[in-house]
Simulated assay, not measured.
Amino acid sequence: MTDPLSKLPLFATDREIATAVVGKERAAMYVKVVIPMLERQGFPRIDPLHDGRPTLLVRRFYDGYLGITAGFQVAAPDGEENLGVWKGRRQARNERKPQLDLNTRCVNALRYMVEHPDVTTSAEIPGATDFTMRELVDKGALREGKKDTQGDRTWIVLDAGREEIARYNDWHGGKRRR
């Protein structure tokens, strides 16, 4: 099918454009009603030198009006779907996340012990009690050691406890929660 606008001269009258766009029967209405409305939307004006509208610009106007210049979205396969990538990212994120579900008091006590390896009793840790240390044992971060020379319980940081503090540092950017 040939485009009726391509058969027009380079500069066409309103009547010629109307006939090409809507046909002979509706051309008069198009010239009287539609063209003035379209001019407000950027329809090409009459060139006074050539006494007609530039048909190339009329075509460009209709391409935009009809959405042709915006292009078409064609559904095409963009590659094989791999939902495992998303699961892998979530799993990696969850592995970075603190896992022992420690309260702030326990985190602070455990952090202090990790940062001060020579500290082994709750009396040496600010704000910690044997109750706090037992919570850390229950969570798998510490284990109970022997009593020291003064009769105080000693506590030993396990790898799980060191790993948890590393996860807290990574997860919170090294900032302590208060």
Rank of each mutant, 00 (worst) to 15 (best):
N108C: 03
R90P: 01
L110R: 01
Y62E: 10
G64W: 10
R90G: 03
L56C: 09
E81L: 13
P77F: 04
G88V: 11
G64E: 12
T104P: 02
N94R: 13
V58K: 03
R53I: 12
A92R: 14
M113V: 05
D101Y: 01
N108P: 00
P77V: 06
F61N: 06
T69K: 14
Y65I: 04
G88T: 14
E81Y: 08
G67M: 11
R53K: 12
R60A: 13
A70V: 13
I68Q: 14
N94G: 01
M113P: 00
P98Q: 05
Y112D: 05
L57W: 05
Y112G: 02
V74L: 14
A92G: 04
F72V: 14
N103E: 09
R93G: 09
E95W: 01
Q73F: 04
N103M: 04
N82I: 09
P54V: 00
T104Q: 12
Y62V: 05
R111A: 03
L100T: 00
F61A: 06
L66Q: 12
L57P: 03
A92D: 11
R59H: 15
R96F: 04
P98H: 04
P117V: 08
G84K: 08
D78W: 07
T69N: 15
A76Q: 09
E80V: 15
Y65R: 11
V85L: 13
Q91T: 15
L57M: 15
G84N: 15
G52Y: 10
A75P: 04
Q91R: 15
K97G: 01
A75E: 10
Y112T: 04
R59V: 10
D63W: 11
G52N: 07
A109R: 02
A92E: 12
G71Y: 08
C106Y: 00
Y62P: 04
C106A: 07
V58D: 07
R53L: 08
G52F: 04
L66R: 12
A109Q: 00
R53A: 07
Q91H: 13
V85F: 09
G71R: 02
L66H: 14
Q73V: 14
R59D: 15
P77S: 15
N108G: 06
R111I: 00
G79Q: 10
Y65V: 02
L102W: 00
E95S: 05
K87C: 08
N94Q: 12
P77T: 13
W86H: 15
